[in-house]
Amino acid sequence: MNVVESIERSVIQTEDLQFYYNTHHALKNINLKFEEKKITALIGPSGCGKSTFLRTMNRMNDLIPGVRTEGAIWIGNENITEPSIDPVELRKKVGMVFQHASVFPFSIYENIAYGPRTHGERNKKVLDEIVEENLRAAALWDEVKDHLDHPATGLSGGQQQRLTIARTLATKPEILLMDEPTSALDPISTAKVEDLIRTLKERYTIIIVTHNMQQAARISDFTAFFLNGEVKEYGQTATLFTNPLFSETKDYIAGKFG
C-alpha cells in the first residue's frame, strides 16, 4: 500500500484497524491518514467495506449487534475506538451525512435546530442565528428563508440533502463523513451538492464515500481505493486516477468491474 508522503497535518489516522461483523472480517489492516481541510474520497465496489470504514469513525457501527473493532483510530490525540470514549460526544465532533436525505418530519427550522437543542441550546435568538448561518452555509437559505416553518419533507430531494448537510453543520463538527450523499439525486441537484462540498472544504475535513468516479475525480484531493475490506491504493486523486499503481485500481476506475 502506498501512503502519500505529503500528508503531514493529519487529523485522523487509523492504525491496523480491523472490523468484524460476527465472524466476517469486513475491514483488514486499514492504515490511513486523512489530511486536515481536504476532501478524501473512498471508492470501491459494493461490499468492499468503505461505508463500514466510514461508520467506524463516528462509532455508528456500535448500533449493530455482534460487531468487533480492533486497532486504533486516532482523531487528534484520542483513540476513538476506546470504550471510554463517549460516542455521543464523538458524534458532535464527527458529523455524518447519509445516502438518503433523512430529514425529520418536522419543520425546516426544527430540523436545523435539532442538534443544537439536544446539546442544550435553549436561547431562541441563538437558535435563529444558528439556523440562518447553517442554511446559508448549505446554500439553501435563499430558497427556504420565507417558509422555515414548512415541513422539511416537502422540499425536493436535492434541497433535503442540503438541509441534512446544514443540520449536520449546525452541530459544529470538525470532520464531515458523507456516505454517498448524491447517489439518490438528479444531476442538477448533484452539482449543487458537489459545489457545496467544495466550499465546505475550507472549514471541514471531509471524507466522502462515492460510487461516482467522476465525482471523486471532481471534488476530492485524495482518494482511497477499497477492495475486499482492504485499502488497495491510496494517493492524491490526480495521481490515482491518471496513473494508478495497480491494475485493479485501473480496471475499477475504467468501469471494468463494480
Binding site: 455508528m60 458524534r91 458532535k92 447519509f98 438518503h100 425529520f104 435539532y114 442538534g115 439536544t118 452541530t171
Partner: peptide, 14 residues
C-alpha cells in the same frame, strides 16, 4: 424509519 434514528444519533443525541 431506521434512517431517522441514525440521523439523530449521528447528530450527537443520546
Amino acid at each position: 424509519p431506521r434512517s431517522l434514528r441514525e440521523a439523530s444519533l449521528a447528530l450527537g443525541s443520546t
